[in-house]
């Protein structure tokens, strides 16, 4: 039952229209950061208020909504955002990737390939990929508009000189359609290849930083690298201990205080579906 104290999905219609305009502009200029007037949401910034506002602007009463946090549906963050929209929009929710029409995510792309009927909404803490080396926003804006992206490679250069390889493993920068360099939010670089050529619409919302950007379906997305240090979508070199998947991103889980550990799919829905289909890893009971 929708809480009648709120408009559908909490935000008023005018605000949602403003956010939709920013989304449309973002879709028209893939990878370009569109400023928007971020609203106060009844939750702390760290909880993904940018993603929540984008979800609120795209949700319709017929949607089925899924929220994942680091791949899991059951963290405090995921549960509270899901219940927020259950309460304020009355939409159906699900944990099954294939059943969701709108998926809000923090730090992962689901393993199961998404379709043209789906929208993936990312929560973004820091939208500006050039920020760490150039703190002046006036300057980074100019760098984007003039395609001056040498600085992005300075960061990767520093990585290699310090670690012997590109150690950036999250929020790995990408170039979109040969034009804008974009921060894909802190997803593991394992997920980077899924960003490109994806059938679903991808929307990125940064609440505190008041930016929205987007990738329309089937956009070209290339991870930056050097000729002699090519990009690699790495993950832990194990099969999942529960479902035996060899193609999914794994979390290392400490099992006991004797130092026992196992590797399991970070995408809990993917892992559960495989186990339900009879796959069994070496650590499964």
């Amino acid at each position: 039952m929708t809480d009648q104290a709120y408009n559908f999905a909490y935000l008023d219609e005018q605000t949602k229209r403003m956010i939709r305009r920013a989304i449309l502009k973002g879709l028209a200029i893939p990878g370009y950061q569109v400023p928007f007037a971020s609203r106060e949401m009844p939750m702390p910034y760290g909880w993904g208020t940018g993603g929540v506002q984008v979800s609120a602007a795209v949700l319709t009463p017929d949607d089925t909504f899924k929220v994942i946090d680091q791949g899991a549906d059951d963290t405090t963050n995921a549960v509270s955002i899901r219940s927020f929209f259950e309460r304020t929009a009355g939409v159906e929710t699900t944990t099954a990737t294939s059943e969701a029409s709108v998926i809000q995510t923090r730090h992962r792309i689901p393993e199961e390939p998404l379709t043209e009927d789906q929208i993936l909404v990312y929560q973004v803490p820091i939208p500006e990929p050039l920020r760490f080396l150039e703190p002046r926003e006036s300057e980074t804006r100019k760098m984007h508009s003039l395609e001056e992206y040498g600085l992005m490679h300075v960061k990767l250069y520093e990585d290699i000189s310090r670690h012997g390889h590109i150690a950036t493993s999250y929020a790995y920068p990408v170039k979109v359609e040969g034009r804008y360099v974009m921060d894909p939010s802190p997803i593991p670089k394992f997920d980077n290849p899924k960003l490109g050529d994806m059938a679903a619409i991808q929307l990125f919302g940064a609440g505190r930083e008041q930016r929205i950007y987007a990738l329309p379906p089937y956009t070209q997305v290339v991870s930056l690298d050097f000729e002699d240090h090519p990009f690699e979508a790495s993950k832990a070199d194990h099969p999942c201990g529960l479902c035996d998947a060899t193609d999914s991103y794994l979390d290392e889980v400490i099992m006991d205080d004797q130092g026992g550990r196992m590797f399991v799919c970070s995408d809990t829905d993917y892992c559960e579906a495989r186990r339900a289909a009879g796959h069994k890893g070496k650590d499964a009971a």
Binding site: G150, H153, V154, Y157, I160, H229
Partner: peptide, 8 residues
């Protein structure tokens, strides 16, 4: 790198 060199 600013003028496009990409070989570390």
């Amino acid at each position: 790198m600013a003028v496009g060199e990409r070989h570390y």
